[in-house]
């Protein structure tokens, strides 16, 4: 085992452990904080795999924006310090779907790669990535931006009752 293997295993253990804590803890806000740990550990795995840019994108977007928004929203509504008794839902269906998807994907990956060694490419340099995104992958890139645009418009409509969906009432 190389150092990279050990690091990957350790980070993977942290990610999985923190992910379990996210769904088992009875503290709402702490669940969000454990999610930060999970996403941070995944970013660390990207770093070990020499995908620097992806790792820092993960930090910028997931840790710095998505989880922060999540926590922000939780704090604006109801976030008691200490355990909440009413957090749990019937876990059966969720376990079936989550576990099934996870196991299926894992089986697929293990079957696809077995023990083949994968060569690392060049460490993710920005120039190469830029050329790839705006050369080979420009169509998916543009389609993604349309998705973001749709989300933006949706957010505006939800937050502005005066231009929102008509529900029979005259806006004030």
């Amino acid at each position: 085992m190389t150092v990279a293997d050990i690091l990957l295993l350790a980070l993977g253990a942290v990610a999985v452990g923190a992910a379990l804590l996210v769904v088992t803890t009875a503290h709402v806000v702490r669940a969000g904080l454990y999610l930060v740990l999970t996403l941070g550990a995944v970013a660390g795995m990207y770093l070990v795999l020499a995908a620097e840019l992806v790792a820092w994108v993960q930090v910028l977007i997931y840790v710095g924006a998505v989880v922060v928004l999540l926590l922000f929203a939780v704090m604006l509504t109801r976030a008691p310090i200490g355990a909440s008794a009413d957090l749990d839902r019937p876990a059966g269906p969720a376990m079936l779907i989550g576990g099934g998807a996870g196991l299926g994907l894992a089986a697929l990956f293990i079957d696809a790669y077995r023990w083949t060694a994968v060569e690392f490419g060049e460490p993710g340099r920005v120039g190469v990535l830029g050329e790839e995104i705006f050369g080979n992958w420009v169509l998916p890139f543009e389609v993604l931006s349309v998705l973001l645009l749709a989300a933006l418009i949706g957010a505006i409509i939800v937050s502005r009752p005066d231009i929102g969906a008509r529900n029979g009432k005259v806006p004030h």
């Binding site: 620097e52 820092w56 994108v57 930090v59 910028l60 840790v63 710095g64 989880v67 920005v126």
Partner: peptide, 15 residues
Amino acid sequence: IGLFFVLAVLSVPVM
């Protein structure tokens, strides 16, 4: 990617 690294890391203090 120094600049990107800086911007990513500076998004953490809000946590």
